[in-house]
């Protein structure tokens, strides 16, 4: 399955992936209007420390601990993509407690927020990948 992979060597820590991700979630067509004066909640997040940086988003594990531990059944695997039904999710954060990558975060709406590879918006393929200026984030088949 195609996944988002991060080539740490090439991550510039520019955080554009976060903004493009946040933009993708809005389904707006102008990024400025979509994100102006907003605190963004991206599904991909950059870690930075001592000159090292890289972005982290859901790995879409084959054995997803988050989905297995989901108490509501909101997290399921749909054609390989670990997807959340935000209507069902009650924001208990058991998934956050279980995700070994820290790739799930609380959303403002009380549910959780995570990367669904832009399968749930109009972008079609991951916006973070398209927006990465240095090919540090790629969307490809790599084995896990």
């Amino acid at each position: 399955m195609k996944r988002v992979y991060v080539n740490e060597e090439w991550c510039l820590g520019c955080h554009l992936c976060e903004y493009y991700c946040a933009f993708a979630q809005t389904n707006e067509n102008d990024i400025a209007r979509a994100l102006k004066d907003k605190v963004i909640k991206p599904g991909i997040r950059v870690e930075e420390h001592n000159g090292i940086c890289f972005a982290v988003s859901c790995r879409h594990c084959e054995e997803p601990l988050c989905a297995k531990s989901c108490i509501t059944g909101a997290l399921t695997v749909v054609s390989g993509i670990v997807s959340v039904d935000t209507e069902k999710c009650i924001g208990c954060y058991t998934c956050i407690l279980n995700c070994p990558y820290g790739a799930i975060s609380p959303s403002e709406k009380g549910a959780i927020l995570k990367c669904q590879l832009c399968s749930d918006n109009t972008h079609g393929s991951p916006a973070c990948v398209k927006g990465c200026p240095n090919k540090a984030i790629v969307f490809e088949e790599r084995g896990l």
């Binding site: 510039l12 955080h15 554009l16 903004y19 990024i31 994100l35 102006k36």
Partner: peptide, 13 residues
């Protein structure tokens, strides 16, 4: 400034 979203990419880059 109507378009700037304070993402600070410019600053970092």
């Amino acid at each position: 400034y109507d378009r700037c979203i304070n993402c600070r990419v410019c600053e970092r880059q």
